[in-house]
């Protein structure tokens, strides 16, 4: 019996794109949170961690409302950029990035905060800017926490259900990722198909986590 592989590819694509966006967004955010001394810092820290405590449906619901053409922001996107993000892959990426934000930002922020400040000051006295110091000194020496952020965001996005269902709607070949496909197959009593997707997800997740622990052991010692 052959099964439709698109849900798996969609999940993989979504997790990859989300992780790349999170690296680009999460590192600067983690940096500013780690080194800021502003009074509003606890508020921003709490906001980043909100997806950890909110039910995914709540988050998905608000993102859906915000991005829908009926709302000012969604209407703006449609009018100016001519894109409708709800029930599309782009919408899934936006939702996943917000939902997995703490999984990237929190470990990276902790890594930056624990990094010896004297090394940062040494780079400054050698004439290096904050950006150069971040790229050449801080990031290469906090690889273990960056790796944690990457793996956790990726794995978390692979297993996401509530947010992608709310924003994506589970449209076959467009937004129906593996976790939703499993749910649909169980609903239709196609247990063998559900089992097929589930086994692949279990094996894949396990392999990813084993790889992470191997890499962590190697890079964790460098720091």
């Amino acid at each position: 019996m052959t099964y439709d592989l698109t849900p798996l590819w969609l999940s993989l694509k979504l997790a990859t794109v989300t992780t790349i966006v999170l690296i680009l967004v999460g590192i600067p955010l983690a940096y500013s949170l780690a080194f800021s001394r502003g009074r509003t810092k606890p508020f921003w820290e709490a906001l980043v961690s909100m997806p950890l405590v909110l039910p995914p449906t709540v988050l998905g619901f608000y993102i859906l409302v915000l991005l829908s053409p009926g709302h000012a922001f969604g209407a703006f996107l449609e009018r100016v950029l001519d894109v409708r993000v709800v029930f599309s892959f782009t919408g899934l990426v936006i939702g996943s990035v917000i939902f997995s934000l703490p999984f990237m930002v929190n470990p990276v922020k902790a890594g930056f905060q624990n990094f010896p400040h004297a090394l940062i000051e040494a780079a400054y006295t050698l004439g290096k800017s904050r950006r150069q110091t971040l790229v050449s000194v801080i990031i290469p020496n906090t690889k273990a926490s960056l790796l944690t952020g990457i793996v956790m965001s990726f794995a978390h996005t692979m297993g996401e259900f509530g947010v992608v269902l709310m924003i994506g709607g589970g449209i076959p070949h467009q937004t129906r990722v593996a976790s939703i496909a499993i749910y649909n197959e169980v609903e239709a009593m196609n247990y063998s198909a559900a089992n097929f997707y589930s086994v692949i997800l279990v094996v894949f997740s396990l392999a990813a986590l084993v790889l992470f622990h191997v890499l962590y052991r190697r890079h964790g010692e460098v720091v």
Binding site: P116, A118, L119, E121, A122, A123, S136, V137, N141, V222
Partner: peptide
Amino acid sequence: FQEYSLFPN
């Protein structure tokens, strides 16, 4: 610096 502050990477 007292603690050398060489970049370990």
